[in-house]
Design a protein around this nucleic acid. Structure first.
Lengths: 199, 199
DNA sequence: CGATAGGTTTACGCGCTGTAAACCCACCCT
DNA sequence: AGGGTGGGTTTACAGCGCGTAAACCTATCG
């Protein structure tokens, strides 16, 4: 029942629980337990329940908390400030790569947990939909400039852009195959430009 | 301790447990429990432990069982029979798409579970490495034919080919965005060909 | 006819989740 | 001073799934 509980308790405490959870997931992987998080936050387990209702509630809160504390909105604005569509693609991939390197551990846990809690799943899909819309908008810009290569529609290319730059491939390339985030950005950008843009 | 237990018990029973697990995951998603699997297989919970050691052991066995029962090797051979590298790419993507549509539910569970059991993680990585090698070999063939576009190395293009055709993007496109496996194959093929092949 | 393989039944301990209730303390208000 | 209240703590308990152990059943085979 992690549904939109209004404010409860000291925001400072809430803040600390979220940070603790975040840290723990980054360090220790997925097997994080509420006791761990509570301990790290210097708080009893029950306090966590007071603030977030249940386990999924904590993760749900993290979905908002992370982009906020990392100033994601502002960085995204910079992408849309780009002069050309081609430049937007490059900036978007770069942002995606650096941002993902900061949140991917948590994202991985969220991805897995989304199927076990309805609210959490909905929140996650919300973010995905927003991401997808942004990618589509970029392709739309490319098309408006007459630069979208033959064979693509805005929808198709937008969806491909969105899915190809999802966390899974990024994770595999950087974590398992040893690519740096910069290499990722460079090569994915090349892949996309060659496919989507007219010469 | 799901480590390579030798044969134990009736192979038929083993078979039925695996099929039951497979079915349940396909139907019900990730929250599958050993009781569920045992019940469906018409067997007691302890029998499952006798055959597979523990939960991870069942999934571990599935990693082998699925490609075997689906005749994956043979289909893969057909990919490598292709006359040209470009044709190999097309066949590989097509195979990937149809095969994934049969195993993705289970794959999703395996992906999630791989971090909680060492042996299972190793087995999963094994399969991933094999997949990656196959993709690389295809790109190598393209390069041998002098068809690899400027800017790519075999390694880089191979890794991109491998990661772009991972399950995550496939899942998102088909399950969430409503693409058919055929649309997926067609568009991913277009994406890759445009990027990797010389005109 | 006894041994063995393949399963079943019963039972137990463990860890994590989620809920509930009683209590504690600091602060504010009158 | 004294009562209320908000924010937390402590203790306790039920439930579920995993994993282990031991005793028992029953075909089959030499």
């Amino acid at each position: 029942m992690s549904s939109a509980e209004p404010f409860y308790g000291d925001p400072e405490t809430r803040h600390r629980i979220l940070r603790a959870t975040w840290e723990l997931i980054e360090e220790g992987g997925s097997g994080i337990t509420l006791v761990d998080a509570a301990d790290r936050a210097g708080v009893s387990r029950q306090t966590v329940y007071l603030h977030f209702g249940d386990r999924a509630g904590v993760l749900l809160a993290l979905v908002q908390y992370m982009p906020e504390t990392l100033g994601f909105r502002e960085q995204l604005a910079h992408v849309f400030d780009a002069p050309t569509g081609a430049e937007m693609i490059e900036r978007a991939v770069k942002l995606h790569s650096t941002y993902t390197s900061k949140i991917d551990s948590v994202a991985q846990v969220l991805e897995a947990a989304q199927y076990q809690d309805e609210d959490l799943g909905a929140a996650w899909r919300d973010r995905m939909d927003a991401t997808r819309a942004a990618h589509r908008a970029i392709i739309q810009r490319v098309a408006d400039e007459g630069q979208l290569a033959d064979g693509w529609t805005v929808d198709t290319a937008g969806d491909l852009f969105y899915t190809v730059t999802m966390n899974g491939p990024w994770r595999e390339l950087t974590r398992e195959l040893g690519w740096t985030p910069e290499q990722y950005a460079e090569n994915i950008t090349r892949l996309l430009r060659r496919s989507f843009l007219t010469e």
